[in-house]
């Protein structure tokens, strides 16, 4: 009984006070900085648009730069081809040292610009741009031409190189592994191993790829072609080393027998 009474008393007291307080404190001091909300929105939008515009301008520059690299590549190739024709015309002379140096230099250039284009390709996977496809197709062609030149030169001038033609596509699940192994040996052997990657995603647009594929009867990916021989499926680390070493005449990186 006593407890209940005291409880009731306690409850009775504060209620009217709180009611009074609520009347005086309705938050009239509160302000809403609507102007700042709107202005902040506008400024944010402006910065956002600035970024978009800048991105578009830079994209344009980027394409132009890749175009330049392509044109440079073309001139270099023409120069190399002329050298090759010249040397063929005067084949009685031993001109092999000259052309092998030239070839190596050009191939080094190709791999440099190719890696840049690959980086660029990976960066913008989501964008399907016609220009990008054309650029990639030209690189594919470049690779095929260099591979032909390198193979022919190897036979004629007996160069100490192992040209590898590598067919792959983005849909093939085991291709990244093959790529890793190829990159590894490219790094081990340096200029002795020449890897020419052919991305079959562009196969339909490029008849030359069709010709090569028909000749070697390529049905699977990944496929490697080393010295006119076809190797389907992932070529393991040890097997590839044996293949490279049998293709090269001598190399300090090969295991001694």
């Amino acid at each position: 009984m006593v407890n209940k009474k005291s409880e009731i008393k306690l409850k009775e007291e504060p209620i009217p006070k709180i009611m009074k307080e609520k009347e005086t404190r309705d938050g009239t001091f509160r302000k809403i900085s609507t102007d700042k909300y709107v202005l902040a929105g506008i400024i944010t939008f402006l910065i956002f648009s600035l970024g978009l515009t800048l991105g578009m301008i830079i994209d344009d520059h980027r394409y132009n730069l890749v175009d330049e690299i392509n044109m440079e590549q073309e001139v270099k190739y023409l120069s190399l081809q002329s050298q090759y024709l010249y040397l063929n015309a005067f084949s009685s002379y031993n001109n092999c040292p000259i052309i092998s140096t030239a070839l190596k230099e050009t191939i080094k250039d190709l791999s440099d610009s190719l890696s840049e284009v690959i980086a660029y390709e990976e960066d913008d996977k989501t964008t399907t741009d016609k220009r990008k496809q054309i650029i990639m197709r030209r690189y594919l062609l470049d690779n095929l031409r260099y591979w032909l030149l390198a193979t022919e030169n190897k036979q004629k001038c007996s160069l100490n190189i192992a040209p590898i033609l590598y067919f792959y596509s983005t849909e093939c699940p085991s291709c990244p592994n093959q790529g890793t192994i190829l990159t590894y040996y490219k790094k081990v052997f340096g200029e002795e191993v020449l890897v020419f990657p052919i991305n079959l995603d562009f196969q339909l647009e490029e008849p030359l790829v069709e010709i090569v594929m028909n000749q070697f009867n390529i049905t699977k990916q990944p496929t490697l072609i080393i010295d006119d021989k076809k190797y389907e499926g992932v070529v393991g680390k040890d097997q590839l080393l044996t293949l490279i070493c049998s293709s090269l005449k001598k190399s300090e990186h090969c295991p001694k027998e």
Partner: peptide
């Protein structure tokens, strides 16, 4: 080219 590869759209923000 590497410099151009950076994403300026988000970069500016």
């Amino acid at each position: 080219l590497n410099f151009l590869l950076t994403d300026f759209r988000k970069g500016i923000i």
